[in-house]
Design a protein around this nucleic acid. Structure first.
Length: 270
DNA sequence: ATGGTGACCTGACCGC
DNA sequence: TGCGGTCAGGTCACCA
């Protein structure tokens, strides 16, 4: 589920419910997500939430004692409850707060992780390796053009690379390339400055639009964080193979490239 | 450094 | 109904 817009929505929800709240109980139902659950994670009790931020697809929670770095991987989700609903199969971590509300981390495939650091240096070290956030001024067509000229990989793979641009996954890569009329498997160094200008603009546009519509999140009604992802209905190309292009009505195609599916209309995208 | 491949893990879905 | 294959929103380690 989670790319930049989805993580942004979750961050906003966490901030709304838990800023300045204190953890009263920690429950762990798994030994390991992507990484082993450390004793620091088991011991979050009495920590007060000072700040909650997002960078790329990471959530950084600052407490009075340290820093919690959360990544949702492929299937992670954060549920906010005000009473103990029955545990479901892939609920792995639970934080109870003094305002009686609960954060539940659910992750079917367990590719996500929770890490705790006393010192901010290590987190900064991880985050400093990431490319710029697509919604900042740092990410502009000059930056993107320079990199596309240097590399030989296809443009889809390039914009999904978090060391080049952080936060774009397969949904928004495909959608932004469709809006830019660029076929996803074009070699990045074949793109013109004009095309890169358009692509940069469309990436920002599609991410902002998705954030406004609360991403593509699916949620159970019993949760306090009821935001549902209305952006899913706005998808034009992602997973629309067998359907028709919304512009020209020709059949949408899908090809597999380096393990990911590229969706495109070969009549509209060149 | 760059690029390609498979690994991590579980469930849903499709065709036979 | 059962079985095998394929697919899935992300990253990382390893190899050439």
């Amino acid at each position: 589920m989670p790319e930049l817009p989805e993580i942004e929505v979750i961050k906003q929800e966490l901030k709304y419910f838990f800023l300045n709240q204190t953890i009263t109980k920690t429950k762990i139902y798994t030994k390991k997500l992507k990484y082993k659950i450390t004793k620091e994670i088991k011991n979050l009790n009495n920590q007060k939430i000072k700040n909650i931020k997002r960078y790329s697809k990471y959530i950084i929670i600052t407490t009075n004692k340290g820093f919690l770095l959360i990544h949702l991987g492929m299937s992670g989700n954060i549920f906010i409850l005000n009473k103990n609903l029955t545990l479901s199969k892939h609920d792995h971590i639970e934080l109870h707060f003094n305002n009686k509300k609960i954060i539940r981390y659910n992750d079917t495939r367990k590719f996500g992780f929770w890490l705790w650091y006393k010192n901010k240096k290590k987190i900064n070290n991880i985050l400093s390796k990431l490319g710029p956030e697509p919604l900042t001024k740092e990410f502009n067509y000059k930056y993107l053009f320079k990199i596309t000229q240097k590399r030989k990989i296809c443009i889809h793979q390039l914009i999904m690379n978090k060391n080049i641009i952080s936060g774009i996954g397969n949904i928004y890569a495909n959608e932004s390339l469709f809006l830019s009329k660029i076929i996803p498997y074009r070699k990045s160094n074949s793109l013109t400055k004009k095309e890169i200008k358009i692509l940069t603009k469309k990436i920002k546009f599609i991410l902002n639009k998705s954030i406004k519509l609360k991403g593509t999140i699916k949620r159970n009604k019993k949760l306090l964080n009821k935001n549902k992802g209305l952006f899913k209905k706005k998808l034009k190309i992602y997973r629309k193979n067998k359907k028709k292009c919304p512009k020209c009505y020709k059949k949408i195609k899908v090809v597999k490239n380096y393990g990911r599916s590229l969706y495109f209309c070969d009549s509209c995208q060149k």
